[in-house]
Amino acid sequence: MTEQTNTAFDSMDPHGFHAHDAHEGHHVVSLRMLVGVLTVLLAFTVLTVAASRAEVWFGEAMGIVIPQWVNVAVAMSIAVVKGTLVLMFFMQLYYDKPLNTIIFSSCLFAFALFLGLTALDLGSRGSIYSWKSGEIIAGGNSVGLVRSVDGIAMSQNVPIQVWAKEVEINELGSVEAFEIEAAHHRGHVDTASTADVSRPRAGATPGLFDATEPGSHEDDAEHGDEAEQGEEEHADDTSDH
């Protein structure tokens, strides 16, 4: 279709249709280039087979243990070079509009994610098995956790919360001191939140620094009575009420 007879041609069309573009983008790859690419591909094929056999031979004749990744790296590098040559010159991506390259690269990216995340999963299974084999206890079993504060180290099959409490008791000097401190932190409310009811727990004891009647706050209508009871009772952290 020539420009003169092309009624579809519209010079004002922003989508870039121009009749003279018709066969402009079609590159005729030279024979020299095609033969050259073929030669390189064949040479790399022989090279990769030779490399593989050389590794086996080295291993057997000289007793050298070649790590497996060398074998994989050599074979895969050569394959990537060969694949790139096929894509660029036989499939003509080198001469083509970049959109086709973008399409294919995005697919290779998806492939890399698929393979990479699967390998990441499988490769890290080993470090998960110790958790999976550990005793199941509320609060976690601390398997694989190595921490130590003030000389008190975490121990296996003890929840991290219990360890944190131990450290605090050690720091305060006695269980009694800890219980008093705990009551402040728990807002003198001995009913913890449940899945159905959310109750604010944190914060200093209301009225703690008022000169008179510490703890005799009335703002917590529901649990006001309980809040006035002795601190020792609140120390029992029970959510059943």
């Binding site: 990769t48 593989s52 086996v56 096929v86 499939m91």
Partner: peptide, 19 residues
């Protein structure tokens, strides 16, 4: 056809050469 060739370029070392 080139894609079929491309796939084989990767299958060949994976199956025959990596040991």
């Amino acid at each position: 056809w080139h894609l079929v060739d491309l796939i084989w370029i990767f299958l060949f070392p994976l199956l025959y050469l990596i040991h």
